[in-house]
Amino acid sequence: MKTIQIKGVSKVYGYTKALDKVDITIESDRIYGLLGRNGAGKTTLLNLMTNRIFPTEGEILIDGETVFENDRVLGNIFYMTEKNLYPEDERVRNIYKWIKEFYPSFDVEYAKDLSERFGLDTKKRVKSLSTGYTSIFKAVAALASNADILLLDEPVLGLDANHRDMFYKELISNYSESPKTIIISTHLIEEVASIIEEAIIIKEGKLVLKQSVEELLSGAYMVSGEASKVDKYIQGRKCIGIDSIGSFKSATVLEAVNNKDEALAEELELEFGKAELQKLFISLTT
């Protein structure tokens, strides 16, 4: 059970349309990045996928079955929420045992081992954990859940660089060992750019695109050099993310990489570089 179909889903809160007729098919055993600006509807979408809230219209199917009040289907999805939903006064190690009640394939030993590697003291109560360790605790629970589908909402919130590195590596190794469908919702786009296979970008409740990162990046490139020469090069081309420092300028050209005009760039003494996912994201969502 790993394929998720979101069919014509809308969610309306009073006068606001949090999601507007979204259609997405999430394929099995891939890592997706769910990207969008604050308030774009990312968390609403994740909440809908896990039946925490109900769509105003449309439906969500997992391997063809509705998620609506379907415990068998929901028992295969582990949702790491941004908010803490675990009992505050409970100790971490007790929560691991408690999770096992709901997720029978939860691996307590692996959770303990991961906690140790991250320096998380499992004797501590949830409320006494720092922001970073609260994230680590929730991430450990997700990784050890052995669920077929992992939904990770801002998994590295408050984590230091070292712990983020450890988390991403563990995520990849966990995924390689037992492939699963993973959706990571995050604002740290460049950090996940090489990890995710496909990007799902939403804006104001609507799906902007769902495309493989490789394809997305090969549809653009960066050009830089002396400002007036860059201007000359980009004239008549579709460009985004134009930046200048003094008389140096760089721009991201929205053309396939093989369309770049090498002869002209040579003449103008310009340099080519790789487009950044983050820059494409900004241009697509503003």
Binding site: R30, D165, Y168, K169, I172, S194, I196
Partner: peptide, 9 residues
């Protein structure tokens, strides 16, 4: 794992 790249890549 070492380079933090998607296994498909």
């Amino acid at each position: 794992v070492k380079y933090k790249i998607n296994p498909a890549t």
